[in-house]
Design a binder for these strands. Structure first.
Lengths: 363, 363
DNA sequence: TCGGCTTGCTAATGCGCATTAGCTTCGGAG
DNA sequence: CTCCGAAGCTAATGCGCATTAGCAAGCCGA
């Protein structure tokens, strides 16, 4: 396979000029060229005229440093990795990491880093955890993790090696794993505070039967807010939190009516991947012949599913995805220089929406 | 596994493992490691067991090649660059490159390349045209370009150096620049063919007063299709193509009525960044008290603006953005192995939509 | 017995740059 | 006159890898 490429076409240029060629033109050494063009941060004495000659030569030849060589010599890549455990750009928009990436890219650019996208799954769909997949991220100076299904073992290994990793989304299973997350608790408290301010006295939360940290946090926010705002659950004494295994089957018009009879005027749902809980709640309220915000108030702990864009905007909060992405980058770059990041929680933005109002006077 | 690295703490392994460390673990030379991991394309004899030992050692240490070093030594590193001249992930959805990236990521993954996103312009707007910004892409084996405002000079330089670049979107200003684009001409012809098949005899195209290649191509598609389908322009003999400098001011209800009196039953608009032309046409038709597809037919050469999602779906075609991204990757990888790419045009998908039908019998 | 072949591996080199440790000169203090 | 230090520059080295040349055995036929 020894096809020698040196003898290119006469026209084809012999590559870009090197520092050595600039040096020859300027009558100095390559070292001097590097010094001049590199800004001479080490403060080595250089004659102004020499400097000028080098600069002139560089301009004349159109010299541009080779980024690969520069990075090799400086032993940094200026690359941040983004690893997601599903395709980073899935076709199904609802699972898209796009909003996070908006923030990631902005912050990375601001800090002078480029981004490398790794895909955890192979394209064919036969993505059964390619063994070394996660290891590839070492190519970058540090890496951001997206998605819930990070293989713990592979991850632990990276972390233990001292490789800088930041997980987007709260994550407590690996003690040394840095993460950033949305402050669901605080956001939930705020929502409950608003409901109380509107005059509500009794509320329930419908959530998935799931133990994702995000769900847990949202429930905690609800409960904390409930207490803090002086609210209560149904008068029957039942738990104000309902875990729905099958929302459609459990959150029925009758269920809504029963809760109302127990004095509940505010119904809160948590955001889920599919929006199933919120959807079920809306359907049940409709089915009961009621409507928000007149007959009762609805709130959603999170953002509504995209396909419900035509429905009235839910009262609740938005997860600041872009801000989370940016925060993750900041934590990561802090790790790169050995600093410990401070606050990993990013505040959610309260969304007034149109599904909550004062409770009906009748109740 | 032995802790015989003198200088390091037992705990902290400095940085990623090198080939030299893999070699030590496997009891071979760095050369052998490079051979094994590099696929040994030079066909040097290697014992299968040695190979296995090396692979095992590499896996154990989590070895990943350094892209910069690889690039420096071999001029390739399995990385494809994506460079855009505005933020790759802009907040404004209409300028989003997301749809392209879907295809780019899929195809790149399929071909075993990872992606480097070069953060071309900073979101803050601070570094409009950092001189060397484009040069950074040389870290990747080849690069995809997105966006219209690529600095021609910097680009020419890359191309002339033989660096593989593919522009997404037709581009003829740089003779040796490879590109992929949507086949607007063919798509336009198809739309006109359909209109003719529905019974229309006279049509007009409203377009921006703009010389973007995409606009030119769409107009060409319209004209070609008009002729091919045996259609004509207004009976008055005016040009069937209207360049609207200010669509809102020019495309009025009266204008629509006049064209209809000239026998025009099909009104075609081109897609623009803002959707202004299509919007103006819809407004004018409404204003004239007419409606599509009963009183006349409307077609849109391209996709409707997102905020008009609730309006009836326009008849027309969709630009296959994901397919374009994938095609761009294929062209790029072809360039990498020195092959010349064949067909840079990707077919658009006809969209039946709901704004076109047979012309009213009265006319 | 020996040259020639094959098999299996390694030493050495260089990619383009940044960095460090010098090596000259020259002016001035002693 | 020395001697010293600053000014002004360069040789040498290494970053991590791919690649080339070549070395050491083992084997075979003559």
């Amino acid at each position: 396979m020894a096809e020698d490429n040196p003898p290119r076409t006469a026209k084809a240029r012999r590559g870009r000029p090197r520092q050595a060629e600039v040096a020859r033109l300027a009558g100095v050494s390559q070292t001097t060229v590097s010094l001049v063009l590199g800004g001479n941060k080490q403060g080595i004495a250089l004659h102004a005229e020499t400097r000028a000659r080098v600069l002139a030569a560089a301009r004349e030849l159109g010299y541009v440093p080779d980024p690969a060589a520069r990075r090799l010599a400086a032993s940094r890549n200026n690359l941040l990795g983004v690893f997601s455990f599903t395709a980073t750009f899935p076709t199904a928009v609802e699972h898209s990491y796009y909003p996070f990436l908006v923030g990631v890219e902005q912050e990375a650019a601001a800090q002078g880093f480029d981004l490398v996208l790794f895909t955890g799954s192979s394209p064919g769909g036969a993505q059964a955890d390619v063994p070394g997949a996660l290891e590839r991220v070492r190519l970058a100076d540090g890496c951001l993790l997206l998605g819930r299904h990070a293989p713990t073992a592979a991850l632990r290994r990276l972390v233990e090696d001292g490789y800088p990793v930041v997980h987007i989304g709260r994550r407590d299973d690996l003690s040394d794993l840095a993460w950033v997350g949305a402050d669901y608790v605080d956001a939930g408290v705020e929502v409950m505070r608003r409901l109380a301010a509107l005059g509500h006295r009794r509320a329930v939360l419908v959530r998935e039967d799931d133990d994702a940290t995000a769900s847990i946090d949202r429930e905690r926010g609800f409960r904390t807010g409930l207490t803090a705002a002086g609210l209560a659950g149904p008068s029957g004494g039942g738990d104000p939190v309902v875990r729905a295994v099958d929302p459609v089957a459990e959150i029925t018009p009758d269920w809504v009516r029963e809760r109302r009879e127990e004095g509940v005027t505010a119904f809160v749902a948590e955001e889920t991947d599919t929006g199933a809980v919120w959807r079920a709640l809306l359907a049940a309220v409709d089915g009961a012949g009621l409507s928000a915000p007149d007959d009762l108030s609805l709130a959603l702990l999170g953002s509504p599913p995209a396909d419900l864009a035509d429905r009235p905007e839910p009262t609740g909060f938005d997860i600041p995805r872009a801000a989370l992405g940016a925060a993750a980058v900041r934590v990561l770059t802090a790790l790169l220089v050995g600093a410990k990041a401070d606050e990993p929680l990013v505040a959610c933005a309260f969304r007034a929406g149109a599904t909550a109002g004062p409770p009906p006077a009748a109740l």
